[in-house]
Amino acid sequence: MHHLDPDRLVLLALSEEIEELNESDHLAQCEGCRQEIQDLRHVAELGSQAQELRELPDPPAHVWQAIEAGIAAAPAPVAPVIDMAGRRERRQRSRWLLPAVAAAAAAVLAVAGTVAVDRFTNRAPAEPVTARATLEPLKAAPPNAGGDVRVLDDGRMRVDVRNLPLTTGFHEVWLLDPDEPGKMVAVGSLSDKPDAVLPVPPGTDLNRYRLVDISDEPHDGDATHSGRSLLRGTLTY
């Protein structure tokens, strides 16, 4: 049995030409050629619906901001240290270097972790803390920027930041809902002092609004988030 020529199948599938009698006979018997024509027709139909898909509008900017917030809050997939290394050092590096960098980063993190624990244990033992977060720098902040947040059991929040970039506006503290982009609570603004204690609005659900965000706000009279986040960290208990 001779199957139909592939070029011929395309013409038949597009109804560009009509089946000859012997071709109809063959198609009636041959499952393979029938399927071939069906697939081609299906693809042609999908193609003919492509017109409206050519100039799809981009998602609005707040979607990407929400993605960045989600990434900052998401647990790192492979090993956290690789994630951090990637974020801190934006240079391309070849893959064989990664394990070495990761190991070095792990060592640094281990030391940093010890220091952080020391700081927590040595400082302010009198303040009962109900939740805390370590703030990490985002793209708009220098790599050595960072901070710590402690929620005290009286409902206030102690925010300790370091190495924030200078601003012509002010730095504001927010609590974001990482699961629902765009939902956030404004906590207050930071002064020149590195250490600020701000009241968390009463009734705020810190399980939901658990992502602490420090933003750079211009003096533009717009009370909403500028979209320029400098530091972020998730509250843990």
Partner: peptide, 22 residues
């Protein structure tokens, strides 16, 4: 992406974000 480069995600988003949203 595997190396943890967030810019690569941004590139993917710029190329395909509109199709995902659609």
């Amino acid at each position: 992406l595997r190396a943890g480069d967030e810019k690569a995600l941004r590139v993917a988003y710029e190329r395909h974000g509109s199709a995902v949203l659609y």
